[in-house]
């Protein structure tokens, strides 16, 4: 009986020990914390960077607020690609990042997403629920809030707004049919079958997505390289193709 149990135990444990010992041996050289809305684009960028430099890039995704909290609590990231410009600023003012290195790598483009003539539906109040990312935590949500003010449709949307934690969740609310309209990022709706209205830039303050070098990255030459790669023509092309604008080169 005991023997049987022993064999059973071993047959369970052996593969487990194997799994643990097979954990990756090479620590990635560069750890980049990236806001979830930029993750797929960052993936492409990291691939190109890896191909040309041979340096492995590890992407850690989360909301800008979450990532900033992780950094404050000691997460060992080299670079932070935020979805806004406030969080990088907060980090540098707290001494966790180098203010000199903050740069805008992309300008987020806001769209209204849904079925039919979304612009008309929004303006005439012809919808049940309008989803936005929470303006308190998500820059796209804040921009959407400004658009609602500028279009003077606050009374149309009163009681119909629902909040996602980020544009991804707002998008999902429409995708699953729980909301009719959602303010999301252009990068999310490319290639979608549903219609969308690209909000004119004059209706909202530009959504500056900023990158900054974090304290562990200061002494890492590769981190500096990755930052300058972000403003290279090659990287800018990829960023524009993914549905963002880039700031004019000065």
């Amino acid at each position: 009986m005991f023997k049987k149990i022993n064999y059973l135990l071993i047959s369970f444990l052996a593969p487990l020990i194997g799994l643990i010992s097979c954990a990756p041996k090479n620590e990635p050289v560069l750890k980049v914390a990236v806001a979830t809305n930029f993750l797929t684009t960052a993936d492409t960028l990291a691939e190109v960077f890896e191909r040309s430099t041979g340096i492995e890039v590890l992407l850690i995704s989360g909301s800008s607020g979450q990532l900033a909290t992780q950094v404050i609590n000691g997460a060992p990231y080299d670079i932070f690609l935020s979805a806004d410009h406030v969080n990088p600023f907060k980090l540098s003012s707290l001494g966790f990042a180098d203010a000199q290195t903050q740069l805008t790598y992309a300008l987020g483009q806001l769209v209204l997403f849904g079925a039919g003539d979304v612009e008309q539906n929004l303006k005439s109040g012809n919808f049940l629920k309008l989803a936005l990312a929470n303006p308190k935590v998500a820059p796209y949500g804040l921009a959407a809030d400004h658009v609602i003010n500028d279009l003077n449709i606050r009374s149309n949307v009163e009681g119909k707004i629902v909040f996602g934690q980020n544009v991804g969740q707002a998008y999902g609310f429409v995708k699953t049919g729980n909301a009719d309209l959602a303010f999301v990022a252009l990068s999310q709706v490319q290639g979608t079958k549903k219609s969308y209205w690209r909000i004119p830039q004059s209706f909202y303050t530009p959504i500056m997505q900023d990158a900054i070098l974090l304290r562990p990255g200061l002494t890492n030459k590769v981190a500096h390289d990755f930052l300058s790669f972000l403003s290279s023509d090659e990287a800018r092309k990829i960023i524009i193709k993914s549905g963002y604008e880039v700031p004019q080169n000065d």
Partner: peptide, 8 residues
């Protein structure tokens, strides 16, 4: 609480 932590 989640929102407050997110907004620091």
């Amino acid at each position: 609480i989640y929102e407050h932590v997110e907004t620091l």
